[in-house]
Amino acid sequence: MDHPQVGRLELRYERLLLAGTDGQLLVVHHADPGSPSAQKPAQVAHTLST
């Protein structure tokens, strides 16, 4: 994924079936802990708070 403020993010994803629905999924993207991509969301949050 390319983010306009921090550049390239390498993310994994998990697909979770939502119980009680007709096949709906929740997809969660996440970076590996300690990876360069894991540091970048904090950079975005800092940019938004200033």
Score class of each variant (00 low, 15 high):
L9R: 08
T47N: 14
Q39E: 11
T50I: 10
L17H: 01
V28Y: 02
E10V: 15
V27T: 12
G23W: 05
M1S: 09
R15T: 02
H3C: 04
G7M: 06
M1F: 12
T21R: 04
V44T: 11
Y13H: 13
L9E: 06
V6K: 06
L26P: 01
A38Y: 05
Q24C: 05
L16V: 03
L16C: 01
A31N: 02
H29C: 08
T50P: 03
D32F: 07
G34L: 07
A45S: 15
L9S: 06
P4S: 13
Q5T: 10
Q39S: 15
D22S: 10
D2P: 01
A45M: 15
S49G: 08
A38P: 06
A45H: 09
E10Q: 14
L18R: 15
Q24E: 05
A19Y: 01
D22A: 11
L9A: 04
A31D: 02
R15I: 00
L16P: 00
Q43P: 01
S37Y: 06
R8S: 14
Q5A: 09
Y13W: 14
A42C: 05
L16N: 02
Q39Y: 12
D32M: 11
V28L: 15
L25D: 01
Q24A: 09
P4F: 09
Q39W: 14
V27W: 03
K40T: 01
G7A: 09
Q5R: 13
P4M: 07
L11R: 09
L25V: 07
S49M: 08
R15W: 00
H30T: 09
S37L: 05
D32I: 11
G34P: 03
E14R: 12
T47K: 14
L26F: 02
Q39R: 15
V27S: 13
D2S: 12
H46I: 11
P4E: 11
L18Q: 09
G7T: 06
T50N: 13
H46W: 12
A45L: 15
G34Q: 09
S37F: 03
D32T: 15
V6R: 05
A31H: 02
L48C: 07
A42S: 14
L25I: 06
A42F: 12
V28M: 07
P33H: 11
G20S: 02
D22T: 02
